[in-house]
Amino acid sequence: MTTATLAVRVWRGGVDGQFHDYEVPRRPAQTVLDVVTYIQRRIDATLAYRFACRVGMCGSCAMTVDGRARWTCRTHVDTVARAGRLEIAPLSHLPVIRDLVVDMAPFFDKWARAHGSFVPTASRRDDYARITPTTAARRAVDAGIECIGCGVCYASCDVVAWKPDYLGPAALNRAWTLVNDTRDGGQAQRLQAVAGDAGCHACHTHQSCTERCPKQLVPTAAIAGLKRLVARAAVRGEIQ
């Protein structure tokens, strides 16, 4: 058993907080979430952080690790700690509640603004919809549907920082999966919602979202798809 330790700086407090230093024992296959949990359970029980599944499914444990947004439950210390040091802060671009916990409400409010909910066109009396898996539309849905809503893309997006009303990569990716859902009946309103300065047109294609998405999704491609559809709709006079 190793006796090596990790020097960890953790953000404590709200927006006006500061980093506190902790010594955490190194363990084999240790994740960043393990480190935070060790601090909370063994050193300082007042440390606030958020997690649930611990296996990369729920999207609740994202934090800024050494300046970069990551899902902490699937990020091994070995891959991020340099010279036995680690800095852990809350996600960027979201209001800090306390310590490592941010308010995700603005993030999910934008999903709602982007019409990110399914609008059914069939009733319970209708038969199941038959969707051919090989169609281009369904493949586009498949490419983006595994988003876990962790906020890593949102925290990594420069445009969100510069333009706070920008919907952001996750909300637009969600809208793109619904735009390609042939069962959905809310397409016109959705295209309207994702158009304009605060929508898909604000994306500069920096691709930080795509580079950092822990699920290897490509929100940049989703946003490019929306740009094409909105442009077509605008030419046809369908954008009000």
Binding site: Q192, A195, G196, D197, G199, H201, V230, A231, A233, A234, I239, Q240
Partner: peptide, 8 residues
């Protein structure tokens, strides 16, 4: 509308 103008 503003959104339409922005799209153009």
């Amino acid at each position: 509308s503003a959104v339409r103008a922005q799209s153009y």
